[in-house]
């Protein structure tokens, strides 16, 4: 039955239910149990923000703390996935991509193609993404474009707890490698979430708000900024549709095309840096495929081409705001 659940608890519940359902699901990561081998409490942390808290008590050694060795354990998760397990590996922050990217993009992503279709690599790599935690340049990035670029990887970035649970369950059941991006600023956000298990198919965007004047495309935290902008614009009689991409690879461009064909205006919002971003990718596809539907030049609202700054005043300027989104919409309405 439906009850409200936070994003963080929805992630926990998805892992719990899948571990209960399927004995081949295991999970590993730094401090995901917390305190292994230490003199104090076993299961001390349940992840650095407590997302996996309580799962060790239920599933025991199927959850494994790892040494601080992302290359080794992400690689081990990938290797185990080709050998009959369905591992979930937690890469604490996607920013740590640099120390294990080879295992993700040269190994997991390529096995199936380069082995002529023989390999299946059902691994899920969970990682925190995004800014707003005053965590500065190496713990706040939105590196989704980098992983979305890689054929063979699937990329998920939910905006709410309902989607997080269903998409994580789908990620775990999926037979391809999935990078599951969790925006740390959404962990406390609550919506209705069924108690039962359910899987949301990949490549199926959600229309977060219906509208007729302009199409705002976003994912993750930016869906909330886009929706806030849309509500504000509605007071001025501008009716925006907000599309939550949910998965970036595969990406549901059909829903975007359908919407832009009716609104004629496109605004892409992305917390990533502007060059080669999801925003630029969506914009390019729309202009190539349905150029004649556009009534105005598409607008991109992204972070600037800088690292993520530390000082709160700067970080707040860095992350796209509802005001910036609204301004971009108005710009499309002016023509």
């Amino acid at each position: 039955m439906a009850r409200t659940l936070s994003f963080k608890d929805a992630v926990n519940e998805a892992i719990d239910q899948e571990m209960t359902r399927d004995p081949t699901v295991i999970m590993m990561g730094e401090d995901i149990v917390g305190g292994t081998g230490s003199p104090g409490e076993a299961d001390a942390w349940g992840g650095v923000l407590g997302v996996t808290k309580g799962l060790y008590a239920k599933h025991g050694d199927r959850l494994m703390d790892t040494p601080l060795s992302e290359s080794a354990y992400i690689g081990a998760a990938i290797g185990a996935a080709t050998c009959g397990l369905r591992p979930i590996a937690e890469l604490m922050f996607l920013d740590f991509l640099g120390v294990c990217f080879d295992q993700m993009y040269n190994q997991a992503a390529k096995f199936r193609y380069m082995f002529g279709g023989k390999a299946e690599t059902p691994v899920t790599i969970r990682a925190m993404v995004g800014g707003g935690f005053r965590a500065a340049a190496q713990h706040s990035q939105m590196l989704t474009p980098i992983i979305t670029h890689v054929p063979g990887l699937k990329v998920v970035c939910p905006s709410n707890a309902y989607d997080a649970k269903g998409l994580l369950i789908q990620s775990i059941r999926d037979n391809d490698p999935v990078i599951f991006c969790e925006h740390k600023n959404l962990y406390a956000h609550e919506v209705d979430v069924p108690e039962e298990s359910y899987a949301i198919p990949f490549g199926e965007a959600n229309i977060a708000r219906e509208g007729t004047d302009a199409t705002i495309v976003a994912y993750g935290l930016m869906v909330h900024r886009a929706t806030e902008a849309a509500e504000n614009l509605a007071k001025d009689g501008i009716d925006c549709e907000v599309i939550d991409l949910r998965t970036l690879s595969p990406i549901d461009m059909d829903t975007v095309y359908e919407s832009v064909e009716s609104t004629g205006r496109l605004i892409c919002v992305d917390e990533a840096n502007p060059r080669c971003s999801i925003a630029s990718d969506v914009t390019a596809s729309v202009t190539q495929e349905i150029f004649s539907s556009l009534k105005a030049a598409p607008q991109l609202v992204t972070a600037p081409h800088t690292p993520v700054p530390f000082s709160p005043v700067l970080e707040d300027l860095y992350i796209p705001s509802a005001e910036q989104v609204a301004d971009a919409v108005r710009k499309t309405m002016a023509t």
């Binding site: 309902y162 269903g166 069924p194 039962e196 359910y198 899987a199 949301i200 198919p201 959600n206 229309i207």
Partner: peptide, 16 residues
């Protein structure tokens, strides 16, 4: 409506 479709999809996704 959108929410009628969404509600049905939410139902159809549930295991079983």
């Amino acid at each position: 409506s959108r929410s009628l479709i969404d509600d049905l999809l939410k139902y159809k996704r549930i295991d079983g």
